[in-house]
Amino acid sequence: MHRDDSAVLSGMEAPVKGPTGRPLRTFAEPPVLKGHGPARIISLCNQKGGVGKTTTTINLGATLAELGRRVLVIDFDPQGALSAGLGVQTHDVPTIYDLLLGTVKNPVEAIVHTNYPNLDIIPANIDLSAAEVHLVNEVARETILARVLRKVSDQYDVILIDCQPSLGLLTVNALTAAHGVLIPLECEFFALRGVALLVETIEKVKDRLNSAIELDGILATMYDSRTLHSREVLDRVVETFGDSVLETVIGRTVKFPDASVAGAPITSFAPEHAASQAYRQLARELISRGAVA
Results as ranks from 00 to 15, higher is better:
Glu132Gln: 15
His134Arg: 08
Ala140Pro: 01
Leu145Pro: 08
Ala146Asp: 11
Asp154Phe: 00
Gln155Trp: 00
Gln155Tyr: 06
Asp157Gly: 05
Val158Gln: 05
Ile159Glu: 08
Ile159Asp: 08
Asp162Lys: 03
Cys163Phe: 03
Gln164His: 13
Pro165Ser: 12
Leu170Gln: 09
Leu175His: 06
Thr176Cys: 03
Thr176Ile: 05
Ala178Leu: 00
Gly180Asn: 04
Pro184Val: 08
Leu185Thr: 15
Glu186Leu: 04
Cys187Leu: 09
Cys187Phe: 00
Phe189Pro: 15
Phe190Leu: 13
Gly194Phe: 03
Leu198Pro: 09
Ile202Cys: 07
Lys206Cys: 06
Arg208Cys: 01
Asn210Val: 04
Asn210Met: 04
Ser211Asp: 14
Ile213Arg: 03
Glu214Val: 06
Glu214Met: 00
Leu215Ala: 05
Leu219Ala: 14
Ala220Ile: 11
Asp224Met: 04
Asp224Cys: 07
Ser230Lys: 02
Ser230Met: 11
Ser230Glu: 14
Val237Asp: 12
Val238Pro: 09
Glu239Asn: 15
Gly242Ala: 14
Ser244Lys: 13
Glu247Thr: 10
Glu247Pro: 01
Val249Leu: 10
Val249Arg: 08
Val249Cys: 10
Ile250Thr: 14
Arg252Lys: 13
Ser260Leu: 07
Val261Cys: 03
Val261Phe: 04
Ala262Cys: 07
Gly263Arg: 05
Gly263Asn: 08
Ile266Pro: 11
Phe269Pro: 04
Glu272Gln: 13
Ser276Glu: 01
Ser276Leu: 05
Ser276Gly: 07
